[in-house]
Each structure stands twice: as C-alpha cells, then as structure tokens.
C-alpha cells in the first residue's frame, strides 16, 4: 500500500448490515460481556484469583476485528485478552478452566486470566508485559511472509504500550521489512491510573505510528460496525502485501483496571458519559431500526449466551487440577518437533 499517513481520517457512518451478520456481532459482544460479568461473580466467590482485567466496554473492538480475519490469521494479545480469546474462537470452557487454575484450561492452569494461549486458533497469548507481545507479533508475521503464507497477524495492545520502547522498535522494524501485521491499539485512555495526556506529550497515537511510514487511522472503538469497516480496510491492504497498518481504536473501559483497583483517578461523570456509548445497546438499537431484531430475539440471544457460560463454568468446576508431579513439565520441550 503506497498510501501514506491518513491518520486524521474519520470513517463515514457504516453501511447497512445483514440480519445474520448483525446478530452474529451482537452475539459475540454479548458472549464477551456476560462471560466477564460472570468472572466478576466468580472472583468474588474466590473461584478465580490473581489479576483479572476486564474488557467490559471494549467488546466492539475484539468482535469487529475478528469479523475481518480468516481462521488461520494470528492474534497476539495482552493481559486484557478475554474478549480477544473468545472472539478468536477459543472455547469458553477451556478459558474458564484456565481462570480456575485447572489442567483443562487453555494453558493447563499455568497462565491464568492474563495468559491465555491456543495454538489451534493461532492465539499467541496474553502477554502481561506491556508491549512485550509487539515484537513477537512482528516475528510471527515475518515468519508467515518468509514461508510464503498469506496470513495476517493482529497485535492488540493498549495505549500505554505506546509509552514503551518496544512499540517504537517494533513498528519501525515492521515498516522497514513490510511485515503483514496490524497494530491494533485499543486506546482506553488510561494505563492503569495514568491518563493518556499525562503520559504522552503527543496524544495522537496514529500520528506517532505514521512517523514510522506506517498507514494509520482512528476508528470509533465503541461502534462495532465502524470497527469492522475500518479494520477490513487495513486487513485488505496488509493481505495485499502493503506492509503493516496501525489503527487507534478510541474506546473506554467501564470497569476499573483490575479487581484491585479502587478507580480513584477517573471522574465518575466521565465514566458515565462513556457508558452512554456502550456498543451493545447501540447495536441492538441499530438492528431494531433495521427490523432485524426485536426484544424477543434479544432475550433469546441472552438465554443462549447464559447457557453457554453455565456450561463453561460447569466444565471448569469439574476439571481436575494438574498433578503437582507435572510441575516441571514444559520448562523445556519433551520432544523435538
């Protein structure tokens, strides 16, 4: 792609959406939202421990991005990755079992909430070092290109990762080498308690990316159709051999940073204002307007999602713990590939 920085581009309102696709997007967002709400309950019940970083409010991004990917495209994510993992197609049961610390979890209970991995869906992990997954994503994408595979790697990270040198080193290298990676920056405006404008002298993150000669633009991260549209444009360019693209998704987390966070640093009015832009009611409204869905349809979706979560929780409850004798397994490989 020869197009150079169009960082200020605001996309036009999204076009029509089919009933089938609209309902799919809504179902995915509901699955993520309700799954995490259940996680909060299970955290309070001490079934889940450690850190638990919620994605509530940001579901439109994972959902819209995944709608543009092929099954064999890769995802590298962060510690706030439940939504990415669910939308990528990892079963809720193994994800929940991971949070329960059970051997049937996606990482045998070694990773927990922050470290979901799934080779089968090419989900290269939740990385809990801020920006730690970014160079890794460049490498995954480079390997696909060097092996002649037409695949894209999506690298999710928050705006706090842009503070880190790893981001700048990696996007520069990806640009130099035309690596097929989408840098998907979920700007929820706070890195833990640090507001973007207090952390970055230049708060237009797409502008930073553009300075590495990477096409970059903003997308409304609270509108799933806008996310899908803006991302599809990027994925098409990347798949066409145009090298990396950076998208800054403007979003907000409705909950605190983690379960430990008393959320003293945000104005409650600001949180309320963003909740008015909740992507789920927004999509329900659109689908109703289009005549694709009514209240009965929404209730049916909710019931379907609740049943799936019930099943996942039962799976996690019933799963065994990894035997302690296996503690040392996988420090090194057991067989040469």
């Amino acid at each position: 792609m020869t197009e150079r920085p169009s960082h200020a581009t605001e996309l036009a309102p999204p076009p029509d959406v089919s009933r089938e696709h609209g309902v799919h997007l809504l179902r995915e967002m509901l699955r993520i939202r309700r799954f995490e709400e259940r996680c909060v309950e299970l955290y309070s019940a001490a079934k889940i421990r450690g850190f638990l970083h919620l994605y509530i409010g940001e579901e439109a991004i994972a959902t819209g991005v995944m709608a543009t990917l092929e099954e064999d495209d890769a995802v590298v994510s962060t510690y706030r990755e439940h939504g990415h993992a669910i939308a990528k197609g990892i079963g809720m049961g193994p994800i929940m079992a991971e949070m329960f610390g059970k051997v049937d979890g996606v990482a045998r209970g070694r990773g927990g909430s922050m470290h979901l991995f799934d080779a089968a869906t090419r989900f290269y992990g939740g990385n809990a070092i801020v920006a730690g997954g970014i160079p890794l994503a460049v490498g995954v994408a480079l390997a696909d290109r060097m092996q002649g595979r037409d695949r894209v790697t999506v690298c999710f990270f928050g705006e706090g990762a842009v503070d880190e040198g790893a981001f700048h080193e990696s996007i520069n290298l990806a640009s130099l080498w035309d690596v097929p990676v989408l840098f998907a920056c979920e700007n929820n405006r706070y890195s833990m308690g640090m507001a973007l404008e207090r952390a970055e002298a230049q708060t237009d993150l797409a502008l930073k990316a553009a300075s590495y000669a990477v096409p970059a633009w903003h997308v409304d991260g609270m509108d799933v159709l806008a996310v899908e549209e803006g991302t599809r444009r990027a994925i098409t360019a990347i798949r066409g051999g145009g090298g990396p693209v950076f998208i800054e998704y403007e979003t907000y987390r409705f909950r605190a940073h983690s379960m430990y966070d008393p959320d003293l640093y945000r104005d409650p009015a600001e949180v309320e204002a963003w909740k008015q832009r909740d992507p789920i009611p927004a999509l329900i409204g659109t689908l109703k307007q289009l005549g694709h869905l009514d209240d009965v349809g929404v209730a049916a979706l909710e019931a379907e999602v609740e049943a799936e979560i019930d099943e996942a929780v039962a799976f996690a409850e019933d799963a065994p713990l990894e035997p302690v004798e296996d503690l040392h397994r996988f420090v090194t490989s057991e067989v040469a590939p």
Binding site: A74, V76, Y124, G132, I134, P135, L136, A137, V138, G139, V140, A141, L142, A143, D144, M146, Q147, G165, A166, E169, S170, N172, L173, L176
Partner: peptide, 21 residues
C-alpha cells in the same frame, strides 16, 4: 541487518521461532 533495536531483534526472532522459522 537490523536497526539498533535489541528488544525488537530478540522479540521478532522469538515470534518467528514460534511460527516455524
């Protein structure tokens, strides 16, 4: 040849190694 970017050098090598190189 890479830029003077040790984090990117090693991180990229790790990612490539995880994906068949």
């Amino acid at each position: 040849d890479t830029p003077l970017s040790e984090v990117a050098i090693i991180g990229t090598a790790i990612g490539a190694a995880m994906n068949g190189m």
